[in-house]
Design a binder for these strands. Structure first.
Lengths: 169, 169
DNA sequence: TTCACTGCAAAGTTTTTGCAAGGAG
DNA sequence: CTCCTTGCAAAAACTTTGCAGTGAA
């Protein structure tokens, strides 16, 4: 499906959602939806807000939050949180499915694709609960951090300062 | 493995971690670790703080945050975030593996167990990245919300007030 | 003795809320 | 014409930071 088709399908879904819930179809809401579907990766409230403004379109922060919540309820956008960073959002349709490797040491996130996981996940059924999409985080230590800790096991005195600082990060 | 064994293993790991990183073994840190391993489910910084205080043990909020971060780095505790709620923590060892069904409508979380998923997940390998544990969230609409929305599709006028209020939740 | 750790209070950051003005239905 | 929405500013909620005193090594 082309990006444009994905976008217009999303607009249709959103319109239906708004109608069904007796909510208003305001220009702000559609402007935000369009922008979200133009972006091809994660974004935060702030970056979306900035992107809209740099397009010369003024929307308040409140409205961005508001609309993203609606879009999330309409299953057009997902919201995720990594560590203690601000919430990240991304459109649901039109993105290839992916999962996240998160380093517990440095917080770095790497995206991965794995069809075996996808197959298992998409076959899930839970009685009355209707799954729409899933989120998988795999925590561990990235190679860089693993190497670092192997190194520090030796030069104990030198790394002293580093480990102390880490604590307050 | 019994709860006590799990706990003392955790204390051993923590001690090793502290030594290796040249950090101090303070009573506060061990008190927090013990409490964490006494709890058998999710907790927040606040509930842990309260639990310690009701035991008559005074630790500051700062120290709780601090120590939980250390425990997370030592892979003894995991940190997760559901929706916009405060971060939830839980011990890693000694809890049976489980995943979460999250309702995108009302935010309710239900724990589930599924050995097929566990099998797939535990077999994962990603080159130099060493997986320690995983986190799976399955989003969808819970039966209660599904029923509610089916109902509101009809009695449009009556539900008007409800949908409006939801927006600012 | 040293300097990492604790606790408090103050500051930050992200997100939510109150309210008046505006515009969709 | 109604009342849902917007935008601003103020408030809230959670977390981090600065600093002085304390205590682990």
């Amino acid at each position: 499906m082309s990006d444009d088709k994905v976008k217009s399908a999303a607009m249709g879904t959103f319109t239906r959602y708004l109608t069904q819930h007796k909510l208003r179809k305001t220009p702000e809401r559609y402007a935000i939806l369009e922008k979200v579907f133009d972006l091809n990766d994660h974004f935060t409230v702030e970056s979306l807000y900035a992107a809209l403004h740099s397009d010369g379109y003024h929307v308040s922060c409140t409205t961005v939050y508001n609309t993203l919540e609606l879009l999330a309820e309409a299953t057009l956008v997902r919201r995720r949180t990594f560590g203690r960073q601000p919430a990240q959002y991304e459109k649901i349709a039109g993105l290839t499915n992916h999962h996240h490797l998160v380093c517990t040491r440095c917080g770095k996130v790497r995206e991965i694709k794995d069809s075996a996981i996808d197959a298992t996940l998409s076959s899930l059924r839970f009685g009355t609960f209707r799954p729409a999409y899933t989120d998988l985080y795999i925590y561990g230590v990235c190679s860089r951090c693993a190497k670092k800790s192997r190194a520090s096991a030796d030069k104990t005195l030198l790394t002293n300062k580093n480990t102390a600082k880490k604590q307050h990060k």
